[in-house]
Simulated assay, not measured.
Amino acid sequence: MVAFIPVNEPLINGNEKKYLCECIDTGWISSEGPFVKEFEQKMSMLVGRKYGIAVSSGTAALEVAVQALGIGEGDEVIMPAFTIISCAMAVTKVGAVPVLVDSDLTSWNMDVDEIEAKITSKTKAIMMVHLYGLPVEVSKVTELAERYNLKIIEDAAEMHGQTYNGRKCGSFGDISTFSFYSNKHITTGEGGMVVTDDIELAERSRMLRNLCFRKDVRYMHDEISDNYRFTNLQAAVGLAQLERLNEFIEKKRQMGRYYTDRLKGISGLILPIEETEYADNIYWVYGMVLDKDIPIDNRTVQKLLAEEGIGSRTFFWCIHEQPVYQNQGLFQKEKYPKAEYLARKGFYVPSGLALTEEKMEKVVSGVRKVMNKIYMLKENS
């Protein structure tokens, strides 16, 4: 009998324990330990960047990236309406303004064709956020950035090892960011990284992650920043995970194909596309979207799946509909119908690397059962 299946089960059965024991045996457990630098070097090399700066979370990486670029009061940053709030928080925290664009319903990423109309004299950057398994159409974003002299902040939190036209995600921004949260292909529990080819941005990022200590006099500060440091313990886990990234990517793609083969043809359910002309899906998670004519939302599906012993999670909620921003008077009367549709109808099922085929089959059976219930409700309404 398979017990309740959580939405994520990480795979940590490589060298994680060995490297953690080395941290403990040597006493290097803080951010000063040698694994931190090694992890920074190997992660930045993976994506073809010169510099990597490990930080405490993906959110911290975004905040460091925005501040390193000098974005501040009144500046505008274009970003997707449909993404995690961390993206907007990094911008509003410095007094800048998120300018939103709607979604593309095929890839679930930002609709890059809507970006140019949002560019003004106040625009300083485009935040290009790759979502759920497929990258943004990068070439259109980089062309606009070059034409209008804008910076690119690339959020590759969910794209470990993914490519766009053969080039690694995380290599396209003036500054790019990763997350190592427990549901990512490479996890350190919590953690993140900033990567760049610009030495000035790298040095500024290092200062920002560490309370803005002055180089010449410790405990003296000309600016205020947070403690975003990353520990040697986290880096030890990250290195062990990084060693197996290719294996993890192949397993994720196998899982994606497994789910698609067994769920295709279910009425009312839109499955993720397997590829675009520029990338194969890396299936950060296995998401799906309810048809517009299904009379319930993703939260109801989440409850029904839980009754079947299956964990699930709804998609991100739209930035313009976040109560915290509504209460501040932001995004008044703004509508992004495709983003709103994804936020209300999208969800994902267990997708962690430790998931077994037996558990995946239970997920498939549960999804089918839930969709049958939904259609019975629809016919009786």
Rank of each mutant, 00 (worst) to 15 (best):
F4H: 09
I5R: 07
N8S: 15
N13Q: 02
G14N: 04
K17T: 11
C23A: 06
C23Y: 07
I24V: 15
W28Q: 09
I29M: 07
S31V: 05
F35G: 01
V36M: 03
V36W: 06
F39T: 00
E40N: 11
Q41N: 08
M45H: 12
V47L: 05
V47G: 09
R49E: 08
V55Q: 00
S56Q: 12
E63I: 10
V64W: 04
A65P: 07
G70N: 00
I71C: 09
G72L: 11
V77K: 14
M89W: 08
A90R: 05
V91S: 10
V97I: 14
P98A: 10
L100S: 14
D102M: 10
T106F: 09
I119R: 13
K122R: 14
T123N: 14
A125Q: 12
V129H: 08
L131V: 12
Y132E: 09
G133E: 10
V138K: 05
K140Y: 02
V141H: 02
E143V: 02
R147M: 13
Y148V: 11
I153A: 04
D155T: 04
A157L: 05
E158V: 11
G173W: 01
F180T: 06
N183A: 11
G191F: 00
M193R: 07
D198M: 13
L201Y: 06
E203G: 12
R204A: 08
S205Q: 05
R206T: 12
L211I: 08
D216I: 12
D216H: 14
D216R: 15
Y219A: 09
M220G: 15
Y228V: 00
N232M: 00
L233N: 10
L239K: 01
Q241I: 07
L245K: 00
L245P: 03
I249N: 09
K252E: 10
G256D: 03
G265Q: 04
L269R: 03
I273H: 03
E274W: 04
E274D: 13
D280C: 10
Y283N: 07
G287I: 01
L290Y: 05
D293Q: 08
P295M: 08
E307A: 06
E308P: 01
E308S: 01
G309M: 01
S312F: 01
H320K: 14
E321K: 15
Q328M: 13
G329A: 00
Q332L: 13
Q332S: 14
K333C: 05
K333G: 12
Y341L: 11
K345G: 01
V349W: 02
L355Y: 03
E358M: 11
K359N: 09
E361N: 12
K362T: 11
G366Q: 03
K373P: 02
I374N: 08
I374W: 06
Y375W: 14
L377I: 05
L377M: 14
S381L: 15
S381V: 10
